[in-house]
């Protein structure tokens, strides 16, 4: 029992560090995807990454490495399809997504025995699968993604906010878009061990969606989303251990719970403010009863 709890502690610590790195990194990059209304792209890249995992298992190589390579190729293909903006792009994306996951499932199956349990850990994440070398990969690649997502923020914000203007202002729009695509692939891959390929995208999107309910600007949204991501990931490791649930699902359920709590809190604050404004507009509060300029009214709407 004593040795069991030491083992438990060590892999718990690894899982915790990995989850915190992912919780910080995924929203920092995901905000650029949400900003250009491509929230689901991480999900598609996750599907493609599964083929990479299959290739790795089949060749008896590190699945993380092959998954990074294959999902980066997939993400670049998705970006090039998006750039063309053709209506057929929608169908091309569907082909890529389903081809990615179907190919992955087949390749994992071909790779040998214990594959079913293996497949589940890649799809949904697991506490126990973060090895020491996995953790090193997660920390190093996570730091690279985080550094670029924060360091290039002004340029990535400009491109994601208004691509046409960014092009006219002389920014290397295509290079920046491809960089975001590759960073998405890297984020998906380092997150797959903990959160799983099917749920990675949630950690890139949900904390951002929660943060933007209250933040007024981009930097504020980014900072708050990172805090929320770490909170969901960190508490998810603890909760998954306590009640023995799948780690990825636990983290995502906590992140969505955070979104709902924020939505209710925002609605409650609005209702209270509205009531306060109504009271203030009664006779005897002449100053507050002055008509507001219409843009202020829009602000509250």
């Amino acid at each position: 029992m004593g040795s069991m709890s030491i083992f438990a502690n060590e892999f718990m610590i690894r899982a915790f560090i990995g989850a915190v790195v992912i919780g910080l990194t995924a929203p920092a990059l995901g905000i650029y995807l949400v900003q250009r209304r491509m929230s689901l792209i991480g999900d598609g890249v996750g599907h493609v990454a599964l083929t990479g995992v299959g290739v790795g298992l089949l060749l008896d190589r590190s699945p993380v490495l092959t998954a990074v390579i294959v999902s980066a190729i997939g993400a670049i293909a998705i970006e090039l399809i998006r750039e063309r903006g053709r209506t057929s792009g929608d169908v091309a994306l569907a082909l890529l997504f389903y081809g990615g996951i179907a190919g992955g499932v087949m390749l994992v199956g071909l790779s040998g025995s214990r594959s079913n349990a293996n497949l589940m850990t890649y799809l949904f994440g697991s506490l126990a699968t973060t090895s020491r070398s996995d953790l090193a990969v997660i920390v190093v690649l996570g730091a690279v993604v985080l550094g670029l997502a924060i360091g290039l923020r002004p340029a990535l914000f400009a491109v994601s906010h208004d691509e046409e203007y960014a092009r006219v202002s002389g920014l290397p729009v295509r290079a920046l878009n491809l960089l975001v695509a590759v960073l998405t692939a890297v984020t998906v891959t380092i997150s797959m061990r903990a959160v799983g390929l099917l749920l990675v995208s949630a950690l890139m999107v949900v904390p951002v969606a929660t943060a933007q309910q209250v933040a007024r600007g981009f930097v504020a949204t980014m900072g708050l989303a990172m805090v929320l991501g770490v909170a969901a990931a960190g508490s998810g490791v603890w909760l998954a251990w306590e009640i023995d649930t799948a780690l990825g699902a636990t983290i995502v359920v906590l992140a969505i719970a955070g979104f709902l709590v924020m939505a209710v809190a925002v609605a409650a604050v609005r209702a209270v403010r509205k009531r306060g404004a109504l009271r203030a507009s009664r006779p005897g509060h002449a100053a507050a009863a002055e008509p507001e300029p219409h843009e202020v009214v829009l602000d509250r709407g």
């Binding site: 250009r36 208004d162 203007y165 933007q212 600007g217 981009f218 504020a220």
Partner: peptide, 11 residues
């Protein structure tokens, strides 16, 4: 008009 990338608030 302002770009379509208005998914996230910006000041």
């Amino acid at each position: 008009r302002i770009g379509a990338g208005a998914g996230v608030p910006a000041t």
